[in-house]
Design a protein around this nucleic acid. Structure first.
Lengths: 343, 343
DNA sequence: CACATCACCCAAACCGCTTTGGATCGTCTC
DNA sequence: GAGACGATCCAAAGCGGTTTGGGTGATGTG
């Protein structure tokens, strides 16, 4: 089917050695020969066989992403798609392949072992880290370069990561609400076993504390971030004897739910209730325009994917270049969903 | 780092040949020897090197997915994620690797060529087919097994595909609205260069025709399926002198936009305006419960991914098994968003 | 007891590429 | 004009598996 180096070499009356060197830019080959080889390769649409090449070089030129799916609740985090799109762009440009494995979460550790023992990848990206994530120790012991998208607070061993400053941005969002005179501020969070959600909670609590507000458990929720969850949270909390006047939401989709609840109650977003949401800048959930619908802590997860991939590739090419870290700040973008507390 | 077959063989005082056959279940090896080999392999966490194995066997045991991203509008279709999750499960279980390439859409054809010339994949999955999709001819000529998620109406050459019956389900949805007495029915569609959207439009027109209703261009829209698009479409159309009383929407996210518009206008979903949306059953956009929020043509894109992957693997294992096709019907699930036309 | 038959194991070739360690030949240096 | 040298090219040995084509010794057959 495809042309091989040997065939190409034979058709040129050259040895495979020379053809290989000609194509890989080695100096010890005559310029005119190189030209001849390149032209022939072009014409024959020759590409070195990936498997043969990586077997010979010992580098697989592939990065592994393991996506765990829990058998119970089959939720696939929507940010995966954009992060992966960003990372994928970077890999393609750098000549790396992206290898995806979708496995039941119970098999995750075994999957990393397998991937590495088979020599299928040169590095791996870790998604959705928990508060105390066992994957860091596992991968460190397996001795493969890896990057974490996010962090894992309760692990002391150093590791490479890229994260957004969740704590800071949620503290700022809280303060923003406080500055508007709000005292009853609710947090509608993601699952707090996940590190990002735990940090957001900390930021929220920091903000309250700085304002001298005692946190109220009735105003804090955590769950998987769906629209109905946002709706339910809002409806439940507004029914409290002392309902919140402001909300922090962990995702656009949850914020949609909040908005629906408000509208069902005949309340106006930004006037009766002030909402700030985190916005991952997913392309199909745009929150922009002259005045964005939602005031948001905004950070492109796609861009995060691009950056994390670049860092991982650096790590792969020079494992010594030490733990690499990047803390991205989320912008606080003012939209139409926030306003002063009613008095 | 990892153990090799040779090392394993040496440690057992056997030849690589025997170890290979023992592990691959060939008959000409003594049962006790096989046991011994299996135990040793287990203990050493031996896995055959993917690249070496596929070089020797000539099969890469990988499936390629190419995700084109247009440089202009960076939208990543949210159904990709769930489809890929479904397909990925199937691949993992079958011992196949999933290889993802995210490339600028201009490079797409070249990417397929590259993937195949390098022998990187045994088959490819094609996403987001257009009305007349050049990829079918390309892949057929390259001689690699492939499956299309969707169809491409204006291509006559036979090919393998899995699709949902978009035309039928949108005709049914239209009739459902008609049966409720609606005559002004709007279509808020995805981009109609994409085959699925074109078919939905046809189904919609079929439904209108069957009811003797003349289609009104003012009630048909197409665009990328975002929430603001749904909102805009609703607001614009309700401002018409003869506004629609019913809507068909191509995605849950668009339907969210419709709902928001209605609520801004003080209209009630299901009473003042009747909405049916397509629902891909994405895990983070649940539309279920005792009475789902939206009446919907429902079909799990995750399940579609699983099935399409199974079909593709069959095709890879036996390329002669002819074009495989699967037309899934979408269920019409009644929810709270539909009701009789106001009189 | 000679010979065919198994059961079991191994040496070596091969998959397609890279890379090491020469070989060859023209040119330079003194 | 001989030895050194640089410019080019090549044969062959891997990389880590699979697979072909034997070998060897024990068993069965007449």
């Amino acid at each position: 089917m495809s042309v091989t180096l040997k065939q190409l070499a034979a058709s040129l009356g050259l040895s495979p050695t020379t053809v290989s060197r000609a194509l890989n830019g080695f100096p010890e080959v005559n310029d005119s020969t190189r030209k001849r080889v390149q032209d022939a390769a072009e014409r024959a649409n020759y590409r070195p066989n990936t498997r043969a090449k990586s077997l010979a070089t010992g580098r697989s030129m592939a990065i592994g992403h393991v996506i765990p799916v829990s058998t119970s609740h089959e939720i696939v985090n929507p940010v995966f798609a954009d992060f992966i799109a960003g990372a994928g762009e970077t890999y393609s440009r750098a000549g790396y392949e992206m290898l995806l494995r979708v496995v039941p979460d119970a098999d995750e550790a075994q999957t990393y072992r397998d991937l590495i023992a088979r020599g299928a990848v040169d590095g791996v990206m870790v998604h959705g880290p928990r508060l105390k994530d066992a994957r860091v120790d596992l991968l460190a012991e397996l001795g493969i370069p890896f990057m974490i998208h996010g962090r894992t607070s309760q692990v002391e061993r150093p590791y490479s990561w890229l994260d957004i400053n969740n704590q800071r941005s949620f503290r700022r969002a809280t303060q923003f609400q406080v500055d508007f005179g709000h005292r009853r501020i609710a947090l509608v969070n993601g699952l707090e076993v996940l590190d990002f959600a735990a940090r957001r909670r900390r930021g929220y609590l920091d903000g309250l504390e700085a304002a001298g507000i005692t946190p109220d458990p009735a105003l804090m929720r955590q769950a998987e971030m769906t629209e109905p969850y946002g709706y339910r949270a809002l409806m439940d909390m507004m029914r409290l004897s002392d309902p919140p006047t402001a909300f922090l939401s962990s995702s656009m989709i949850v914020a949609y739910g909040l908005r629906r609840g408000l509208s069902d109650l005949g309340l106006k977003l930004g006037r009766d209730v002030s909402v700030i949401t985190h916005d991952d800048d997913l392309s199909y959930l745009p929150n922009d325009g002259d005045v964005p619908m939602f005031t948001a802590t905004k950070s492109s997860v796609r861009e995060a994917g691009r950056r994390a991939a670049r860092m991982l590739l650096r790590l792969v090419e020079d494992p010594q270049c030490g733990p690499l870290t990047d803390l991205m700040e989320a912008a606080l973008m003012v939209g139409a969903s926030t306003g002063p507390a009613p008095r």
